[in-house]
């Protein structure tokens, strides 16, 4: 499937920043499930020049780039446009140049930390399976996550942890993903947080065009994606951007802006994403 992405992120600062630095994980890497036909990132800071570092590929296979602006910035915009050819690999991530040992992804973070409720849910889910293989266990944990949470925006925040989300019983894709990777790691299955784009409505503007899901490691098969929020494995509607231990670590944009000392700076964030299918 040929997908077209337009992703515009705008930051507004009041009062203006003195300087800002961002690390962008905004370029998809090729693997069997996706080929990148075109990809472009442009940054605009009004009158201030934007310094762009060279892109490099980190151990996990993601392309990373630094952008920085010095001077008074009131508005900063990152615009991504691209064209990706995808195919359905049933969630299996094959052919990604990834050098990080999967065992490194057994480490929990604050966001994924499993409390007793999550640990019990993971254990109860897997006990019923008997001697099933890791792939079945992964599917079961994903289904348990889908069952445990209702998809409902506005109930959780960016900083909500897996443990908090399971208590609330509702959440968005980020919460589903933290719950799933928290339970997977607690069950000794390496798991990571993945960000990307999803073609989710015929008009291309449906919710969650900017999306997140989990990948769990299955020996012999490799990393396999699970989208608990949508009760499926990623297929040709998905574009994979990058991965990390949790939402913060995997964030497509990680930035810091410095304002005047002792002065509160209001930061407004506007995100506009559209994923559309191109006509053949």
């Amino acid at each position: 499937m040929k997908l077209q992405v337009r992703h515009k992120t705008t930051y507004r600062f009041d009062p203006p920043t003195r300087s800002m630095v961002q690390s962008l994980r905004l370029t998809p890497s090729a693997f069997e499930g996706q080929q990148i036909n075109a990809w472009d990132i442009t940054c605009d800071a009004g009158d201030c020049p934007v310094e762009t570092g060279s892109s490099f590929t980190e151990g996990a296979g993601d392309h990373i780039m630094t952008v920085s602006v010095r001077g008074e910035v009131t508005e900063f915009t990152v615009t991504v446009t691209g064209e990706v050819e995808t195919s359905d690999c049933s969630g299996v991530v094959k052919g990604l140049r990834d050098k990080v040992p999967p065992l490194a992804y057994l480490r929990q973070t604050t966001a994924s930390w499993p409390n007793a409720v999550l640990k019990d849910l993971a254990r109860d889910t897997l006990i019923d399976l008997g001697t099933a293989g890791v792939l079945q266990q992964a599917h079961a944990l994903s289904k348990a996550t889908s069952d445990a949470l209702d998809f409902l925006p506005g109930e959780t925040e960016a900083s909500t942890s897996a443990a908090e989300a399971i208590g609330i019983g509702k959440g968005v894709c980020q919460d589903f993903t933290h719950v799933l990777i928290g339970m997977a790691r607690a069950s000794d299955i390496p798991a990571r947080y993945v960000t990307g784009y999803l073609l989710s409505g015929s008009d291309g503007s449906a919710h969650e065009a900017s999306h997140a899901w989990a990948e769990l490691y299955v020996a012999g098969l490799g990393w396999v994606g699970f989208d608990a929020a949508n009760e499926c494995c990623p297929d040709e509607r998905y574009i994979r951007l990058g991965s990390g231990f949790d939402a913060i670590d995997a964030a497509p944009i990680r930035g810091i802006s410095v304002g005047e000392v002792d002065q509160e700076m209001l930061e407004e964030l506007l995100v506009d994403v559209a994923v559309t299918q191109m006509q053949q």
């Binding site: 980190e58 050098k99 990080v100 040992p101 065992l103 480490r107």
Partner: peptide, 17 residues
């Protein structure tokens, strides 16, 4: 493997460089 890769001091961000 787990002593190395699961170790809290093992930095994923340092892999491959």
């Amino acid at each position: 493997a787990h002593l190395v890769y699961k170790n809290a001091a093992y930095e994923k961000a340092a892999v491959g460089f």
